[in-house]
Design a protein around this nucleic acid. Structure first.
Lengths: 209, 209
DNA sequence: CGTTAATCTAGAACAAGTTACAGACTCGCC
DNA sequence: GGCGAGTCTGTAACTTGTTCTAGATTAACG
């Protein structure tokens, strides 16, 4: 293993997961093309439209290569979500929420994220469905998403070192956030209802913790 | 359409959904055999082990028949969940939670349900994954599950006519419940952590609503 | 009973995720 | 420049959810 990369498993599989495997420039480019192709396809037709063969073709890589970079469709879409969350996080850092108390700021932040998702409902569908459907095999990647989400919420709270209490609160907020998104995506609750749910959890939880 | 039933669609498809289509005794039996076979398979290997061909074989029906009764694997597993929830509900009615205030009783109820799921983690996996992965095509069936869950929680609260406030609270509790289960099932949080999450949401939400 | 519409069965066929493999290619190194 | 390890490509095969079809079976009704 001296060429384009050194994988972390003896099997010679799995690229770019875990910790900082240095990627060639061409590999970095491939990875990006794959993520972009997935995002494009997801934006059009949601979860079902992200078909591995199509992703591979659009990205200009062989199917086997796609699977080397992302060992399953779930991994792929979770990676897309990480991508989007990182965008969101930097955007939010530039224009932080302006609410008076932490609960308001968190609610505002989540509603901003929600509006972004509403602009790309199909993409949201693909990402969120992948996220929650992920099984143990993708837990590391999903954990990263969770870390990013937590960071965003804590940033919005803006109260410095979080207490254990606060961390519990953030967990509940995240649970509500994900589950509310699901009900919206599957057409079982309205945008207004999601808004209410988010505001409810932020008010009640954020207020007391 | 005069034989074993009269379906509700012109296509002659979809059996036993929507409103009270009277089923023959043999049809009722088939339906039950299918649900039982699914439950058995799910208990063994979780979501992935519920394979439509196997379900059909174990239940002694043809594959096409299985699909007539349950138009997708998701529908099937959501029906299994309805089944289990109905069991749980009647069990709970017999031995209602004993906590002093509503929040405690809800937490106790959910923890009891959680312990039941821990006894059959694979079955839990199958049911919960199906539930959250369900798309618009199964929203009616998922709504029924939601109705059942809400009823169980409201029963545990035991405070008669729920106020709109209280209903919002129950929504947040349900969101947290589902999402916490997911994190547990996918190995991203411990049993203890789920317990904390449930208690947190019940305390904070149940207390103030 | 016989008719008839609907259901059920058995099995093939199709779709999309995943795996496997042989050969071409690339990179770092001598 | 050539070597060797590791990649990438193209393609076929396999798996499992889903659909389709032709024929056997069943149930209600006269």
């Amino acid at each position: 293993m001296t060429a384009e990369n050194r994988a972390e498993h003896g099997t010679g599989h799995a690229l770019g997961h875990g910790t900082a495997v240095p990627l060639t420039e061409r590999q970095e480019a491939r990875r990006r093309r794959i993520l972009d192709a997935s995002t494009r396809l997801a934006s059009r037709g949601g979860f079902d439209a992200v078909q591995m063969r199509e992703v591979a073709e659009e990205a200009g890589v062989a199917l086997g290569t796609l699977y080397r970079y992302f060992p399953s469709k779930i991994h792929l879409l979770v990676a897309v979500m990480q991508d989007q969350l990182r965008h969101l996080h930097t955007t939010l850092r530039k224009r932080p929420p302006a609410g008076a108390d932490p609960a308001e700021r968190v609610a505002e932040t989540l509603m901003r994220a929600f509006r972004a998702l509403q602009r790309e409902p199909q993409l949201a569908d693909a990402m969120v469905r992948a996220l929650i459907f992920a099984d143990r095999g993708a837990s590391a990647e999903v954990d990263e998403v969770s870390r990013l989400t937590t960071a965003i919420i804590l940033d919005a709270m803006g109260t410095g070192q979080p207490t254990p209490e606060r961390l519990s609160a953030v967990r509940v907020i995240e649970h509500t956030w994900h589950s509310a998104l699901i009900t919206w995506l599957s057409g079982r609750s309205s945008i207004a209802q999601v808004k209410v749910d988010i505001e409810t959890v932020c008010r009640l939880i954020g207020g007391s913790a």
